[in-house]
Nucleic acid binder design. Sequence first.
DNA 1: CTGAAAGCGCTTACAG
DNA 2: CTGAAAGCGCTTACAG
Lengths: 339, 339
Amino acid sequence: MKENVSMNEIANIFKVSKVTVSKALNDKPGVSDELRKEIKKRAEQMGYRINSAARSLKTNKAFNIGILIAERFIEDPASYYFGVWGKLTTVLSDLGYSAIMETLTVKNENELNLPMMYSERKVDGLIILGQLKKDYLNLFENFDMPVVFFDFYIKDSNVDSVVIDNFYSGYQITNMLVSKGHTRIGFVGNIYSTSSIQDRFLGYYRSLLENKIPINYDYCVSDRNDDGQLIELTLPKQMPTAFVCNNDQVAYRYIQMLNKHGIKVPIDCSIVSFDNTIFSTLSNPPITTVDTHVEEMVNVVTKVMLKKINVPNKSYNRILVKSSIIVRDSVKDLTSKNI
Amino acid sequence: MKENVSMNEIANIFKVSKVTVSKALNDKPGVSDELRKEIKKRAEQMGYRINSAARSLKTNKAFNIGILIAERFIEDPASYYFGVWGKLTTVLSDLGYSAIMETLTVKNENELNLPMMYSERKVDGLIILGQLKKDYLNLFENFDMPVVFFDFYIKDSNVDSVVIDNFYSGYQITNMLVSKGHTRIGFVGNIYSTSSIQDRFLGYYRSLLENKIPINYDYCVSDRNDDGQLIELTLPKQMPTAFVCNNDQVAYRYIQMLNKHGIKVPIDCSIVSFDNTIFSTLSNPPITTVDTHVEEMVNVVTKVMLKKINVPNKSYNRILVKSSIIVRDSVKDLTSKNI
DNA sequence: CTGAAAGCGCTTACAG
DNA sequence: CTGAAAGCGCTTACAG
């Protein structure tokens, strides 16, 4: 394989200028169709590869998108973000962009150091995967490069974000329980911990309101302390017929805890949760959960990013992506005849 | 934030040339310490960011490493490769390199299309994460860019690779079972399916040989067909006291199958496996497994890659990274007094 | 220690 | 349709 073929070399072969070769290869007007075809063919044969550094230097576009993720999110091998990561890479690639990944260390986050891919001008835009410290996120207000937050948002920010519709998801899955005849429904999760748990809880509450079911805090239990550290799961003061758990992992643990107390799912108690992660399929029984449509979220975030790159000062605010219920075996139908 | 500060701008402020600024910022000799310090300070204040496209154009080094992974490996949300991916990114970043990720679609693999990051000269080297089709891998023989295979190797290849020492791992964990008094030991896995299963099996066999335990194929069962598709797990013709499973996921499934037959782990039967993935911790009981030292493998592969970039024609062949046993609760000690 | 000059491989605006 | 010229922002080899 030839090491370095340049446009100039190809131009010499055809006795034309490199300008013509550039136009031919980039599908720009100003070359006859025939010549264009010949040049493209020859370039391919010669193993021509464009020098994107030279292109970037001229055009000020790197055709790279940076993806920043905090180290703590990838320590968990079952992290939801890995899937996002993979899909982002694939989708960007289809659009002619490469994905540069960088992990943000605790140190860099605390010291407010911007990522290397930014300070070396390697990327045209930045996608922030998962919530970071407020101070760090503030760096991106009025930033000199397009930035989109993925899977979280912060209040009073002018940075665009793409998030799941947690509120609606909570509403939806609780409605489903009600439609199966459940009226005593609990919630598992610390509702003061993250905005995503809070929104899911509020959706759950909305469903109760709409169905004229009074909320009963005796059915509700916490799953973590205010610092986000998981705590031991307990039975509520009174037992409901169903629980809405704030995510699959908690649901998985909750089922194990119930089993220890001799309570079988879904015979004695129904469980639903959110995220459609590996925990929902590995659980016994497999859990009815809310799928977050990662694919759709990724499509949306890349589309927004490319628009922002081309029209810098437009704002998209908070974009909600809808979700859908995946029905598995953790919910009992109380309305069916064969109880 | 100022959009575009160049070396020239900084040079004008100090009434020196951009050459001096370049030397100062890059810690190259030829500038007085005092001036260097002043320039660096000022550059920081002005928000100077190097234009790596310009640097690349001159030096022919992008300071990007490409990581190629087949789409099929990231479809499984619990894929072992995600962790590798994350660590690679972190380690490369520490060394001043950015990681460009690209997924290889089935189509591109079949049509032998090289990755975009290569054909646009965006990377200085390529790490291939996980085995690809032979034909595709053949593209990298005598390639015009450093390439390292990660977690697999192919025979008769001159491409360097970094792999776990599967043979030794199998040997080691089987030795452990023997030391706990087990002599009837089975193996779970199709030994004709992948080189990694085969190597683990051969390590297991070596331990038996060394301990003068005749191998008994009646203790062994398959876990997948020759195409790699998982099949239903069954009990062997005779029951051993322990099984070496070729990976955690299989072990997880095998324990579930044993439970269905009323066989309890580790009371009635011991289980060990490989990889230390989420399946080994989620299992009940948690499984004693072989940890693959991802961190070490990543350190090795990046070190090799950087060496190859700097000294292109040196060869490192197959580098084996050792592993270690993580003891959990799935093995019964047959030698202890309190049986 | 410092700098003038050349040049990396493209793209763009303009002229013919 | 085609090309000469300029220039993107650096680095390097060399001269002073």
